[in-house]
């Protein structure tokens, strides 16, 4: 078991759900409520030193409850270590805390997750669409959005 998993399991036992190390990628599954505290800890802890939030994305698992999974990839530049944190997010209340106050990189990534999956980030300063246009309805990377459903601004449907 990786060092980060051990520490998180001991320190954040109340929101720790699961951990695995498939293909060598250290992965921790947490309850969504804990993410802001965990991220602040990861960033400031002198041993872990995860100073870069590399990526924020989500995965849609239709038929599974909770339906969505928000996936964070952290990177520690001094230790050259990676950590993936996953948060199961229910379909009826797709909302997690924003990490924008901690990392500037979270700003655009979270906007993209909102645009593509419709997951809201609590406390985000400017949560609006980033890749699609405002007139676009729905969230295209959800599995139930048909790949060819076009919503043109001008011109015919196809």
């Amino acid at each position: 078991m990786g060092r980060a998993t051990e520490i998180l399991r001991a320190r954040f036992a109340d929101c720790f759900l699961d951990a695995h190390e498939q293909h060598g990628d250290e992965t921790v599954v947490l309850r969504p409520a804990g993410i802001a505290a965990v991220a602040a800890f990861l960033r400031s802890d002198a041993e872990l030193l995860f100073n870069v939030l590399m990526d924020v994305t989500a995965v849609d698992y239709p038929g599974r409850t909770p339906r969505f999974e928000v996936v964070y990839h952290f990177y520690s530049l001094p230790r050259r270590a990676r950590l993936r944190i996953k948060l199961p997010v229910p379909e009826d209340q797709p909302e997690v805390d924003s990490l924008t106050p901690l990392w500037k990189s979270a700003n655009w990534y979270e906007r993209e997750v909102w645009d593509m999956f419709g997951i809201r980030f609590r406390g985000h300063p400017n949560l609006k669409r980033i890749l699609m246009y405002e007139a676009f309805e729905g969230h295209p990377l959800r599995k139930d959005y048909p790949i060819k459903k076009r919503q043109p601004l001008i011109g015919p449907m196809n």
């Binding site: 593509m116 669409r129 980033i130 890749l131 699609m132 246009y133 295209p140 990377l141 959005y145 790949i147």
Partner: peptide
């Protein structure tokens, strides 16, 4: 941004 969104991931 987003003017060249071509839905790679989809």
């Amino acid at each position: 941004i987003g003017y060249l969104h071509r839905a790679f991931e989809k």
